[in-house]
Design a protein around this nucleic acid. Structure first.
Lengths: 134, 134
DNA sequence: TTCTCTGCAAACGCTTTGCACGGAT
DNA sequence: ATCCGTGCAAAGCGTTTGCAGAGAA
């Protein structure tokens, strides 16, 4: 049942302790954590963990296509393990990121005006349910 | 024909020299410049221009809804004066940003799962026509 | 006077880079 | 011995903040 380790091996990445734990954490989350959030969550598990390792690791994972980085503002990046399929909703009040089922076409155009499209990212911004009610 | 000045006045912003020139530049561009690009383009026109003023100004314009900021990577923001209507294509090779006519629905859903949607941003990533051919 | 706008300088936050240590092969 | 992975420390880069001076009202 060690999913993270298996994924790493399938992608030709040697499954070090840090890599397994970081990937496992990202697989568990649906909240698209930032590097800082990954760090805060795992520093207790591995007290010697450094941010450099997190940056090294997510860069490696991105390159291999295991995770995807999302730029929501101009500052920090967020990471997710389920590329495609869904869009992101960002609450401009509380900062929460929520997955939305992509309402329209699942398979998007692969070419437009001669440009080769490899990736599509949809971000909605507004006020989330909790902030509207609360 | 001073469009920039008129837009500022319509939005209750006093049209200082710097504000007019920055807005005029943004209106002329279809390339979604970053703060740095605005600075480099206008420093010749106003040698005393500072980046702080550019940041102050684009923040003010954003707040008033005159321009829109686009987060493409995790680092810098880009600015555009034509909100809505189109999607953005980012070439991962040369970094160019190209407008695409939004192929699907023009008027998107305003609510989803109880979340109030105010803004939609679509980013395609891939290789642009020039990079494919060159 | 007071209020607004500008811009230098410093601080800030996220990320990358340089380098050295330790472990595996 | 070499190679790889980790992590401290410093640098880098885009942006924000503090503050003071100039100018308008």
């Amino acid at each position: 049942m060690n999913n993270a380790k298996r994924i790493l091996e399938e992608n030709g990445i040697s499954p070090s302790l840090q890599r397994v734990i970081i990937l496992r954490y990202l697989l568990e989350q649906s909240s698209h954590p930032s590097a800082e959030q990954v760090y805060q969550a795992l520093i207790q598990e591995i007290p010697t963990l450094s941010k450099t390792t997190i940056y090294n690791t997510v860069k490696l994972f991105s390159k291999k296509g295991i995770i995807r980085q999302i730029a929501l503002y101009g500052n920090e990046l967020h990471y997710e393990t389920q590329p495609g399929i869904h869009a992101h909703f960002l609450c401009t009040k509380c900062g929460k990121i929520i997955d939305l089922i992509q309402p329209e076409e699942e398979s998007f155009v692969k070419e437009c005006n001669g440009h080769l499209i490899k990736e599509k990212e949809v971000i909605y911004k507004g006020i989330c349910k909790d902030c509207r009610e609360g």
